[in-house]
Measured scan of single mutants.
Amino acid sequence: MGTYKLILNGKTLKGETTTEAVDAATAEKVFKQYANDNGVDGEWTYDDATKTFTVTE
């Protein structure tokens, strides 16, 4: 398990959240659902060194 971070750079929603997941693929699924639930759809990037996903609208 590891802690993964999501940085939201949406047009109307900005912020950060974290999740505990077994791997990056699992964290990505959780974060994409979170972003979708909050109406954020954009370009995704992932930094393996910091376990950080970023979505920018």
Rank of each mutant, 00 (worst) to 15 (best):
M1Q: 09
M1N: 11
M1L: 13
M1C: 09
M1H: 10
M1E: 12
G2P: 12
G2R: 14
G2N: 15
G2Y: 14
G2A: 15
G2S: 15
T3N: 07
T3A: 09
T3I: 14
Y4I: 02
Y4R: 00
Y4G: 01
Y4K: 01
Y4D: 01
Y4H: 03
Y4F: 08
Y4W: 06
Y4N: 01
K5R: 15
K5Q: 05
K5V: 10
K5P: 01
K5N: 06
K5A: 05
K5G: 03
L6K: 00
L6H: 00
L6I: 04
L6E: 00
L6D: 01
L6S: 01
L6G: 01
I7W: 04
I7S: 04
I7P: 00
I7G: 01
L8S: 03
L8R: 02
L8C: 06
L8K: 01
L8Q: 02
L8M: 13
L8V: 13
N9A: 08
N9T: 08
N9M: 11
N9D: 10
N9V: 14
N9L: 14
N9W: 11
N9I: 15
N9S: 08
N9P: 03
N9H: 09
G10K: 04
G10C: 13
G10V: 10
K11C: 12
K11E: 06
K11L: 12
K11D: 07
K11Q: 11
K11P: 11
K11T: 11
K11N: 13
T12M: 12
T12W: 15
T12V: 12
T12I: 12
T12A: 11
T12N: 14
T12R: 08
L13W: 14
L13I: 14
L13S: 07
L13H: 13
L13M: 14
L13E: 07
K14V: 11
K14M: 10
K14C: 10
K14Y: 11
K14E: 05
K14R: 12
K14H: 10
K14L: 07
G15E: 08
G15C: 12
G15H: 11
G15Q: 13
G15V: 14
G15Y: 13
E16P: 04
E16D: 06
E16K: 07
E16F: 13
E16V: 11
E16G: 07
T17A: 12
T17K: 10
T17E: 06
T17H: 14
T17C: 12
T17G: 04
T17V: 15
T17I: 15
T18N: 07
T18V: 10
T18F: 13
T18S: 11
T18K: 07
T19K: 04
T19W: 08
T19S: 05
T19F: 13
E20Y: 13
E20I: 14
E20H: 11
E20M: 13
E20L: 14
E20D: 14
E20T: 12
A21C: 07
A21H: 03
A21L: 02
A21N: 03
A21V: 04
A21M: 03
A21I: 02
V22K: 10
V22D: 07
V22F: 13
V22C: 09
V22Q: 12
V22M: 14
D23F: 03
D23G: 04
D23W: 03
A24V: 12
A24E: 06
A24H: 09
A24P: 09
A24M: 12
A24R: 12
A24C: 09
A25D: 09
A25K: 11
A25G: 09
A25T: 10
A25F: 09
A25Q: 12
A25E: 11
A25P: 08
T26F: 07
T26I: 06
T26P: 02
T26C: 06
T26W: 08
T26A: 15
A27I: 01
A27M: 01
A27H: 00
A27G: 02
A27Q: 00
A27P: 00
E28C: 13
E28I: 08
E28R: 09
K29A: 12
K29F: 09
K29C: 08
K29I: 11
K29W: 09
K29G: 07
K29L: 14
K29R: 13
V30S: 06
V30M: 09
V30F: 15
V30T: 13
V30K: 08
V30Q: 10
V30I: 15
V30R: 10
V30W: 15
F31L: 05
F31M: 03
F31H: 01
F31R: 00
F31S: 00
F31T: 00
K32L: 09
K32H: 10
K32M: 11
K32G: 03
K32F: 06
K32R: 14
K32T: 05
K32P: 00
Q33F: 05
Q33P: 02
Q33V: 08
Q33E: 09
Q33K: 15
Y34L: 06
Y34Q: 03
Y34K: 03
Y34P: 00
A35E: 01
A35C: 10
A35G: 03
A35F: 03
A35D: 00
A35I: 05
A35M: 06
A35V: 09
N36R: 15
N36H: 15
N36F: 14
N36G: 07
N36A: 15
N36Q: 15
N36T: 14
D37W: 07
D37I: 10
D37K: 09
D37H: 08
N38K: 14
N38R: 15
N38H: 15
N38V: 15
N38Y: 14
N38I: 14
N38E: 08
N38P: 01
G39N: 10
G39L: 08
G39F: 06
G39T: 04
G39A: 07
V40Q: 03
V40F: 11
V40D: 02
V40N: 03
V40I: 14
V40L: 12
D41T: 14
D41I: 15
D41M: 11
D41S: 13
D41V: 14
D41F: 13
D41Y: 13
D41G: 09
G42K: 01
G42H: 02
G42Q: 02
G42T: 02
G42C: 02
G42W: 05
E43R: 10
E43P: 04
E43W: 13
E43G: 05
E43S: 11
W44K: 00
W44N: 00
W44E: 00
W44Y: 02
T45S: 13
T45P: 00
T45V: 08
Y46W: 04
Y46L: 02
Y46C: 01
Y46A: 01
Y46Q: 01
Y46V: 01
D47C: 09
D47W: 04
D47L: 04
D47Y: 05
D47E: 07
D47R: 03
D47I: 05
D47T: 05
D47V: 05
D48F: 09
D48I: 10
D48Q: 12
D48R: 07
D48E: 14
D48H: 09
D48V: 12
A49V: 12
A49G: 07
A49Q: 12
A49N: 12
A49E: 13
A49W: 08
A49K: 12
T50F: 05
T50P: 02
T50A: 08
T50G: 04
T50R: 06
T50M: 08
T50Y: 05
K51C: 06
K51H: 12
K51N: 08
K51T: 04
K51A: 06
K51E: 03
K51F: 11
K51I: 02
K51R: 13
K51P: 00
T52E: 04
T52P: 00
T52W: 02
T52Q: 04
T52G: 02
T52I: 06
T52R: 03
T52K: 03
F53E: 00
F53A: 00
F53D: 00
F53W: 08
F53R: 00
F53K: 00
F53G: 00
F53L: 01
F53V: 01
T54V: 08
T54L: 06
T54E: 05
T54F: 08
T54M: 12
T54H: 06
V55R: 01
V55W: 04
V55G: 01
V55P: 00
T56M: 07
T56E: 07
T56Y: 08
E57C: 06
E57M: 07
E57V: 06
E57A: 07
